[in-house]
Amino acid sequence: MKEIVRKTMSGGLMLLISFAILILSVGVFVLGLYSDSGLFLIVGSLMFFIFIFILPGFFTIQPNEAMVLILFGKYVGTEKEAGWHWANPFYTKKKISLRSRNVNGEKIKVNDEMGNPIEIAAVIVWRVENTAEACFDVDNYVDYVNVQSESALRHLAGMYPYDVDDENSQTLSLRGSSDEVSEALKNELQQRLGKAGVIVEEARISHLAYAPEIAAAMLQRQQAAAIIAARQKIVEGAVGMVQMALNKLNEESIVELDEERKAAMVSNLLVVLCGERSTQPIINTGTLHN
């Protein structure tokens, strides 16, 4: 539905008019009593009933609130201006908050793109933008937001893996691409909640972990991957240092080494540089070949 912004009368102005009607009704009624005229009594009574009729039309709106006005089942408009207002007493008035709200979703268990069970939760910030759609296009827009938020999160979790093994991979993951995943979640939520007149201001994953039944195995896998990556860096650095040492010895002509001695030196340096524990030096008191 299309929202219609409707301007209502000022409550203060209508209060003055109602008091004037009340005073006139009392005056006419008293005049009818003293003049023994039934017409004055009828007019005074009608004016008093008009005063009573006016009273239910007053309502107030606080900042970032709106009042949806319905006349005999037909939507006639929405008043969004804060203050004291008056509208047709026959209007059914439904107040809606336009303030930002949070949905702190509970942890749910889903499968990621690789089929691994994970636990995930999200925090969503939203507000009502179109009051007509929020009131008439869905049954209960608050429940609608809660249900669709969980549904969108389940769908998003199945589109990405929890993590990727290759650091240079361009594949997005739930753990390594939080900004991109949050933006995708926000866009999907906006598509789902747009029909309820809701604007999604922010969507963030608040909890992400492997499910308890595979958490230990995945932790060992991550530790093994970290050890392999660290060893790879160590080996690359050690080879570079050995090459630099051999080149320096050759440039400075410090010692002449044949291929066999070079191989022994390379082996010893790699053991020293790649070993997990510190090495103990052995002093050779003999010749180079002993």
Rank of each mutant, 00 (worst) to 15 (best):
V239K: 11
E202Y: 06
T131R: 02
R6M: 14
T285F: 06
I23Y: 05
K93R: 15
E119R: 02
A82E: 14
M114Y: 13
A66M: 02
C135P: 00
I96Q: 00
R192Q: 13
Q191Y: 09
E3M: 11
N111F: 15
V147N: 08
R204F: 05
A215Q: 09
M244K: 14
R154H: 10
D139T: 07
E133S: 07
W86C: 03
H85Y: 02
R175T: 04
N116Q: 15
M159Q: 11
M218K: 15
L174P: 00
L22C: 15
R192S: 06
A264F: 00
E276M: 03
V5A: 13
I214E: 11
Q232H: 05
K95M: 08
L288G: 12
P281K: 09
N168T: 12
F59Y: 14
Y141V: 00
G275V: 06
A121W: 06
M9F: 15
K2T: 12
L249R: 04
E133G: 01
E180F: 11
S35M: 05
Q148G: 09
S178A: 07
Y75C: 00
D179E: 09
G27W: 10
A87P: 06
P117W: 10
F48A: 15
G115L: 07
F58C: 03
N130L: 01
R175I: 05
L16M: 12
S35C: 01
F48C: 05
V242D: 04
K233L: 11
A132M: 04
S182W: 08
G38F: 11
S151N: 11
M265K: 00
I21S: 10
T171C: 01
G44W: 03
E188F: 06
I283S: 00
V68I: 10
Y144Q: 07
P117M: 11
L71M: 13
V30Q: 07
I52F: 15
V30G: 05
N116E: 14
A157C: 06
K109G: 14
N111A: 12
N247R: 05
I283A: 01
I282C: 03
I282W: 07
R6G: 00
R6F: 05
Q222A: 03
V142S: 05
V103C: 10
N88W: 08
V43C: 11
L13K: 15
F72P: 06
Y34L: 09
A121F: 09
K233D: 14
H85S: 04
G286V: 03
F29D: 07
G176W: 00
V198E: 09
C135M: 14
E252L: 07
S177K: 03
P117F: 14
I254S: 02
E3P: 01
A121E: 01
I205V: 13
N64I: 03
G237K: 07
S177N: 14
L257A: 03
E119S: 03
Y144N: 09
L288Y: 00
